[in-house]
Structures are given as structure tokens and as C-alpha cells.
Design a protein around this nucleic acid. Structure first.
Lengths: 208, 208
DNA sequence: GCATCTGATTTCGAGTCGAAACTATATCGA
DNA sequence: TCGATATAGTTTCGACTCGAAATCAGATGC
């Protein structure tokens, strides 16, 4: 008792804000997160392993390494190393030496890993998302704002796909055999596929 | 390789859906969840412990027990029991015997627990939420739809506060000393504070 | 009175998680 | 070229989550 009483008083903030307090909304965000977490105990993997496998399957060639994984998942490199080991022992991922840097490791999803990714539990969420219909763009806006808020609060920023990056130049090199787009940072050509991969050097739009 | 290529082709679904695919949105939901998860490694507690402490502090007298906690957090009773033990050893929660049922346990947040709840890391999210301004109600709608989708997918439904329950009768007993509202299930009077507590018998509105 | 049900706990094995120590390679500057 | 330092990754540690299954004790029903 005591704690919850703050929500109810002479000037009820629930009514004042038009139906929903910040605390109530934070709870909803948390509840959604818990729901998604619990959804990911599937096919013998746990949420951390699904997150890692998904990341490795979607990251571009500069980002398929333990450090980038740790940074994306906001975990330490030690923890990332252990989760990779778990995935490796299940035969879903392999470690390969980097061609020039002897310290670096290249992570590759195996055929078994690829086929397991077809059963990604997060896909069960996509059905519900499709029911949002045209509301999907409003939802994206809301989610991006909330993610911004959370990542500002924790000081740890995630990253995204090339297409959403400030360095991305669409159709900059239409006649290049490697792909029509370009990364403004590395000046490399990017194919359509590469443009939708997660990049560790991703730079989000400047915030208001 | 391979996996991400599905997003790019002659008929690009990103453009087709007006800027955001279902997969992309599911990723955002997951990323938000991970961010919130990571925010909750704070003050010596982990996310599971914060979730449990928060729940016990907000649940009503029928719901402050291990079973209801497990059901709310979508974990097994065994896991709930262990997390309670961890909170107990930190002096944040105590177990008390139930007055009539010898098997049942009543969970109570200690004074130390109450003061720790004042530093709930989820509050760091509330600042970001307030910046949504009037968008907060749209956000609530989006979150509720997503939660519905996730809980349908997992088959495990969470529950909420009396005010959001179909059994809740607002101002049904304005002259009762115990409170102006009423629970249509137990027929008990509910004070303003009790109405904003989480109830294990919560019944959400029928879905479309 | 006994079978069954229910609330809660314990035990087990796999694994997350941060922290810190550690290994090995790379890079930079004198 | 050598040494200091930086970087990539791993290992170890202790606390803890998590589901599953076994277990215990009180409640309920016939």
C-alpha cells in the first residue's frame, strides 16, 4: 500500500491527462517487453540466443562480430561471447577467422541456423502487427520515440539498417555492378540486400 | 546473407506498406523491449526482481501472493518462488502467513522496498513518455493492440487494475465508508486507492 | 477418512549477466 | 625496431533466471 495511492487524489492525473498517466504507459511498455521476452522461449533457444542469432543473420559484413553484437544487444563482450558459444554448440553459428585482422572473428549463421530463423518466434508478432493496418506507421512513430527515450535514458544507443542511416545515398551509383546505392562513409556501393542489413556504423537521424 | 534479401526485390514491401514492414516493426518492438530490459539492471536488482517488487507493491490484497505474481509475469511458480527468495534476502519483501489458508502466503513490501521503489528505473522512461505530449493516448492504443497480439500469440494473458476491469462499477456505493466504487464480482466496496491496484481476477474488455 | 486438489517450495541443469582478469594481435610514436 | 598502449575476444566467477519435475503441506470433496 501507499505507493499506488499517488494515482488517485482530488486532482486525479488519470483524468487530467485524458485517460493515461505516464506511469501507466511505462507499465504498458514494460508489459509488452515481458510478453515479447516470454514469446522467445521457443525451439530450444532463449530470448538472448534468438536475439543473437537474428542479429548475426541480418548484420552486414562489418558487423558480424562479437563486439558489434554486444553493442547492438547492449550487453558486455563477455556475455556476448558466451551466448555465441551456446549457439555454436547447438550448431547454429560458426566462428571464422578474419582475413586480415588476427584478433577479429567473423560470425556466420549455418544452414541449420538459417532454417531455424524461418521459425523465428518474433514472426508470431507480425500477424498482430498486420492487423494494425494503416496504423502501422503511427505505431512506428510511437515506437521510435519510445526507443529514443529509453536509449537516451540508458546512454546506450542501438543501431539499424543502412537504408535508415544518414550516410545512405539512394541510387547514387546506378551503374555500379555491386549495387545502385552508396554508403557515404565508406564510399562503397551497396546492393539492395546490403542496404537492408544492420550496420555497426549506423548513424541515426539527428534528434529534435 | 539470404535472409535479409527478402525485404528487397522488384516489388519492395517497404514501399508497398508506406514505409514500414511488419518485420521491421516487430524488430522495433523487440528493440524497445531489450532497451527496457537493460534499463532495469539498477540498484543491485535485475529486471525480474524489479518486475516482481513492482508487482507486489501494486497488487491488491487478493493478488499479493506467489501464484498471482507468476501468472502476471508469465513465469512458473517455481521461478516466482526463487525471485521472491532473492528479494527477501535483500530485505525488500517479507512473507506472511495467510490468516485462514495455511498453504497461502501473503507478500508484503518492506519499508526498504518502498523506498527502493521510489527509484524504480522504469521512472526514467516516464520522462520520455511525457515528451509524447498529447500523443500519449495514441501510444496507449498502439501498445494495447500490440500487447493483445503478443498475449494472444503466447496464450498467456496478463491482467490489470480494477479501474480497467469489466467488473468495476464506478461510484456504485458513494456512501460506503470503505469507498465509492464496487467490484461487481466480489460485490465489495473499493476505495480510490484499491481501484488502481492490480487484481488477479481482472477481466479485460471483450476484444473485437 | 481418504483421495484429490491446490499453493508453495526445492532441486536440477542450462544459460544470462556484469565484472574483472587474461590472451593475443594491432597500432602508434619515439 | 622496440615498447607502450589500444583493441578483439575469451575465460572465470558469483548471483541469478528459467522451465521442468519432484516434493510437501494444507484444503476440499466424496
Amino acid at each position: 500500500m501507499g505507493n499506488a495511492a499517488k494515482d488517485t487524489g482530488p486532482t486525479d492525473p488519470i483524468i487530467a491527462s485524458g485517460g493515461c498517466t505516464a506511469q501507466r504507459l511505462a507499465d504498458l511498455v514494460n508489459r509488452l517487453g515481458r510478453g515479447v521476452h516470454c514469446l522467445q522461449f521457443a525451439d530450444g533457444l532463449n530470448p538472448a540466443q534468438w536475439d543473437a542469432l537474428r542479429y548475426i543473420g541480418r548484420a552486414n559484413r562489418y558487423s558480424r562480430n562479437p563486439s558489434a553484437l554486444a553493442s547492438y544487444l547492449k550487453i558486455t563482450k563477455g556475455t556476448a561471447s558466451q551466448t555465441i558459444k551456446a549457439l555454436e554448440s547447438k550448431g547454429l553459428v560458426t566462428r571464422q577467422p578474419h582475413c586480415t585482422d588476427g584478433r577479429a572473428v567473423h560470425l556466420v549463421v549455418t544452414t541449420e541456423g538459417e532454417s531455424l530463423l524461418q521459425r523465428d518466434p518474433l514472426k508470431r508478432l507480425e500477424g498482430a502487427i498486420k492487423e494494425l493496418g494503416t496504423g502501422i506507421d503511427a505505431a512506428k512513430l510511437v515506437l521510435c520515440e519510445l526507443i529514443d527515450g529509453v536509449e537516451d535514458a540508458s546512454g546506450k544507443r542501438g543501431f539499424g539498417v543502412c537504408e535508415d542511416c544518414t550516410h545512405f545515398c539512394r541510387n547514387e551509383m546506378p551503374n555500379d555492378s555491386c549495387g545502385p546505392h552508396q554508403c557515404g562513409l565508406t564510399l562503397e556501393a551497396l546492393s539492395g540486400m546490403e542496404s537492408s542489413q544492420i550496420c555497426v556504423d549506423h548513424n541515426a537521424c539527428a534528434r529534435v
